[in-house]
Amino acid sequence: MVPVRYGFHGLSYSHVAAKLRDRYRARAGGRTIIAHLGSGASLCAMSAGRSVATTMGFSTQDGLVMSTRCGAPDPGVILHLLQARRLSADELVTLLYEQSGLLGVSGISGDMRTLIASEDSGAAEAVDLFVYRIGREIGSLAAIMGGLDTLVFTAGIGENAPLVRERICVAAAWLGVGLERNREGAEVVSNATSRVDVLVIPADEERAVAAEMLVFRSAAFTTAREGSR
């Protein structure tokens, strides 16, 4: 039995999945990894438009390095902070949710734009860690699906940081990923020899909410009409 994870960014992934169905029809991109990279960040593996794995779990603490969250904290570290450092529960929550991640590593900022523009070694280390963790998780998700057909970048960093996209794709080159039009604002940024389609699809969670509401409204109307017979 495949384990089930709660995950987050579902509206964003729903929107991207719909766009992939428009492009690829029933295939929906085949074996796809969607990288929602913003202040919160996660990856979702999809097979023919259906989610099969995600990097987040019960909480937003799991998975990738984020703006102010470390992602996948070692439980032993949490015990150390509680027992040896004597942090209170409230202090621990503040540390994990507001003072870690890119901000904690760099000591400068949790904003990727600031880190990329900075010449500080801490900023470079934070960006390196961000890319490293995404590359590692892409490998893990590709292994689950037995390969990769489509890689999609979305959300603030995914859409607007071509340098980060480029470095992630270099890390995933062993899967057949190749870039060409990465800095031109195109939707398809993979090159002609890439075995993986690499796309940039703007996040539109509001549209996903509207689509869900239309489905709900239609179902409610049908139920009410059948109940009145």
Results as ranks from 00 to 15, higher is better:
Ala220Cys: 13
Asp204Asn: 15
Ile33Ala: 02
Leu141Gly: 03
Met1Thr: 13
Ala210Cys: 01
Thr223Leu: 11
Val198Phe: 10
Leu92Glu: 02
Glu119Trp: 08
Ser121Leu: 09
Ser100Thr: 08
Gly176Phe: 06
Ile134Thr: 07
Arg31Val: 07
Asp197Val: 03
Ile34Glu: 04
Val188Phe: 03
Pro202Phe: 10
Leu43Asn: 00
Met213Ser: 04
His80Gly: 00
Ala28Thr: 03
Ala211Lys: 04
Arg167Met: 06
Ile134Leu: 12
Ser218Lys: 12
Leu175Gln: 13
Met213Gly: 00
Thr94Asp: 14
Glu226Leu: 08
Gly227Arg: 14
Val16Ser: 02
Arg165Ala: 10
Asp90Lys: 15
Glu159Lys: 07
Gly156Lys: 11
Asp128Glu: 14
Ile157Thr: 12
Ile116Cys: 06
Asn182Pro: 10
Pro73Gln: 06
Thr60Ile: 12
Gly38Leu: 06
Cys70Ala: 11
Leu129Lys: 03
Asp120Ile: 11
Ala161Ser: 15
Met145Pro: 01
Arg50Cys: 04
Ser39Gly: 13
Ala124Phe: 02
Ser51Tyr: 04
Leu82Pro: 01
Gly104Phe: 11
Ser88Met: 10
Val52Asp: 02
Ile78Phe: 01
Tyr132Pro: 00
Val77Phe: 12
Ile34Ala: 02
His9Thr: 07
Leu115Met: 08
Met213His: 05
Asp74Ala: 03
Met66Asp: 03
Ser228Lys: 13
Leu179Ala: 02
Leu87Phe: 09
Arg183Asn: 03
Leu102Val: 07
Val177Trp: 02
Gly135Phe: 09
Ala26Trp: 04
Ile168Val: 15
Ala45Trp: 12
Ala211Val: 03
Pro3Asn: 09
Ile134Asp: 03
Arg136Phe: 00
Ala48Gly: 04
Leu175Tyr: 07
Glu137Gly: 00
Cys70Tyr: 02
Gly135Ala: 12
Ile134Lys: 07
Ser51Gly: 06
Gly57Asn: 14
Asn160Trp: 06
Cys44Lys: 11
Leu179Tyr: 00
Ala41Phe: 10
Ala208His: 09
Gly110Phe: 07
Tyr97Gln: 11
Val188Pro: 00
Ser140Ala: 15
Glu212Ser: 02
Arg5Cys: 00
Val164His: 08
Val93Ala: 09
Gly71Thr: 09
Val52Met: 05
Val188Leu: 15
Val105Ser: 01
Glu226Asn: 03
Ser140Glu: 05
Ala123Arg: 11
Val93Ile: 07
Val170Phe: 05
Asp111Leu: 10
Leu102Lys: 06
Ile144Arg: 04
Asp62Thr: 13
Gly147Asn: 14
Ala48Phe: 05
Gly101Tyr: 13
Ala72Trp: 09
Leu148Thr: 05
Ile144Lys: 02
Asp90Pro: 01
Ser100Ala: 14
